[in-house]
Structures are given as structure tokens and as C-alpha cells.
Amino acid sequence: MTAKILILIIAIEFACTSCKKEVIEQETNAGKIEFEFVHKVRNESLYVDSLCYLNQAGNPYEVDELKYFISDVYFYNTNGAKLHIDAQTAIHYVDIDYPETLVWKIFDPIPTGTYDSVSFVFGLNEERNISFAFVNPPEVNMFWPTVLGGGFHYLMLNGKWKNPQGNMIPFDFHLGIGQTYSGITSNVDSITGFVQNYFEVTLPLPTLMINDNSTNKIQLAMDIESWFETPHTWDFNDWGNYIMQNQLAMKTACENGYNVFSISSITNNKKTMQSWKDNESHSKN
């Protein structure tokens, strides 16, 4: 009897170890895209926390923090189709203090083909810009007070400039939902309405070929200096250090934003989805 019980236990153990874990492979016929975000000032890599830049208005300035959202990316196929990136998320947050945010490995499979342009929203549109939509750092720190329109900052570009008196003045070059006021002061009690300041950016792609199981990396560059020139010359001495409650200033800044982005490069990454999944499968076993 005892021997039979032992056989029973061994039999159960054997049966239980016979079900191996595995990854179920799926046909894709698609590739992947990664965005790499780089930040420059006049074609040189951004150098932070140092007073080393001079804008078109002649303000010496430094950049200390840079963080922003892009959303609703579309890729335009040469066959006329357009692909909306939103299968997992339509929003990406970029923050130079968090290097991991400087690469966006897009979840969506990209159908094979040739793509000739890409567009995205700088900031967040009304549908996506909802207070408390993000609750974790670092995105949560982009919170835009409800009383000023709610949601999140589109952009936080923080730094300092040297005024004509030689004093270093901190600036918060912040973009988000603007307000209209009934009076001449920016008292929150006199807010009469809100203005959506997000804007769309469209960039041509120098031939993006998506092959099956391949990964393409697109380097997206932001030129910081462009925020302060074309079409409007931005003078910190005129606009001051805080613009969250100054709709005219935010409108001016947004109008300067149309050409801050460019495509630096597109490279094909040899690592394929298939090999990645193989690695994943091996690690599980």
C-alpha cells in the first residue's frame, strides 16, 4: 500500500512537470519603429546647467530642464494609407533627466512598405489632456493646475537668463492650456475661458522602408534655439519668467514651435522581432 502511495505522488509530480511553458508565435508581416529624441542648440548637442547660449534677442541663457509630450503620431505610406500609433499608447513623454524616455520603442507593428512622412501633436489634444490621467513620476510632474485649465503641461523648458542688469533670472518656458481673463490681471477668479495650445508637426521622411521583422530607428531632433526665433524673436526681458497665465506669450511660443523638430537620421536596426522573441523564449526556459 505504501509503495502505491509513493507511486501516486511520483505520478502526480511527473504529470505536473510535463506541461512546459512556451511563447506562442504569431505571424506579423510587419516591422518596428523606434524614436530616438535628441536635443540640440544650433546643431550642437544640448549642454545643460551652463550659461553658454545666446538667443536671437541677445539674451544669454542656460537650459536646466527639458520635458515635453508628443502624441497621436501618424506615419504616411506612399500608397496613401496612414497609420495611427495608438495600439498601446498614443502619448510619449520625453525628459532629458530620464534617459529612458529618450527612446520610444513603439509597440504598434508597422505594416511593411514605404513611408514618406510622419506627423504628431506637440502636447496633448483635448481628448487626451485629462487631469490625473498620469499619476506616476515623471509624467505626473507635468500636472497643469485644474484652475488654469487642467491636464498636463505640453512643455516644460526651464532655465535661466541674464538680464541687462547682469542678474541671473530663472525662466519657466511652459506651454499648456491657456486662459482668457475678463480683466487686465491674471487673477484666476477672472478666468472666462480656456484655449487649447497644442499644435501639429509634420515632417518629411527621407525614405523609410519597413521590412518584415526589421526595426528602424528614427532620430527626432529638437532645436531649442528655434523656440526663441522664427517667426517671433523671443526676448525674455519682455515676456518675463512665467508664462503659464499669459496666453499671448504661449501663443507666440507655439507659433515658434512649428519648426523646432527635424528628422536627423533613420537607421535600420539588424535586431529583428523574431530574434528578440527567440531570446525571450530562451530566457523563459
Binding site: 511553458k21 506562442i24 504569431q26 499608447t89 529612458e100 520603442k105 509597440f107 525571450e280
Partner: peptide
């Protein structure tokens, strides 16, 4: 059957379906 998000730097970069998880 189980679905697992593949996370890298707190971003969901892919999703796999697992058998016998």
C-alpha cells in the same frame, strides 16, 4: 493562455501570448 506585456524602461514595447504559464 496568458498575455504578458514586455516592458523596457517602463514602456510596453511588445506583448506575447504564453501557453502554460
Amino acid at each position: 493562455r496568458a498575455i504578458k506585456n514586455i516592458l523596457e524602461n517602463n514602456q510596453v514595447i511588445d506583448q506575447v501570448e504564453l501557453k502554460n504559464d
